[in-house]
């Protein structure tokens, strides 16, 4: 998430992020949570297109993003599979983004609620 996205949002009742990015994010999330483990086949472009009513060209663009990122691999004539090491790649990337994406936003929200640094640390300890 960039600085812009942390800014307050008005009027936006449903995200209008490009659909191909949403497709890529959903599959990445499924790999991250273990719904698709390494080596497992991911749904085909046609299946996703049919079940979620998305143009197959859009789905393919999202899939290609994951191929480029090394998260899934194409096996010609068979389908798409979760790449070996994909989970570690996602974890590594998300760890790097954790401070920017989550911590800064948490502190901003805490400040707005007049929660002090000490109180926030206590809350984190309680939640752990």
């Amino acid at each position: 998430m960039t600085d812009d996205e942390v800014k307050r949002v008005y009027f936006n009742f449903n995200s209008a992020e490009p659909i191909y990015l949403q497709v890529a994010q959903q599959i990445e999330e499924a790999i991250f949570t273990g719904s698709y483990h390494e080596g497992a086949q991911v749904p085909s472009t046609t299946e996703i297109s049919r079940d979620f009513h998305i143009n197959p060209a859009t789905v393919l663009k999202g899939m290609n993003r994951l191929v480029e990122a090394g998260l899934i691999v194409k096996k010609r004539g068979i389908g798409m599979f979760v790449a070996e090491g994909a989970h570690a790649v996602i974890v590594d990337r998300r760890r790097k983004a954790f401070y920017q994406d989550k911590v800064i936003q948490l502190i901003k929200e805490a400040k707005g609620l007049q929660i002090s640094e000490g109180e926030l640390v206590d809350l984190i300890k309680r939640g752990f």
């Binding site: 812009d4 800014k7 307050r8 949002v9 008005y10 009027f11 936006n12 449903n14 209008a16 992020e17 490009p18």
Partner: peptide, 15 residues
Amino acid sequence: HLPDTVSLEHLDLQK
């Protein structure tokens, strides 16, 4: 420069 107070969002096709 986008001020802190202003949000910039994409629209969906219907909007």
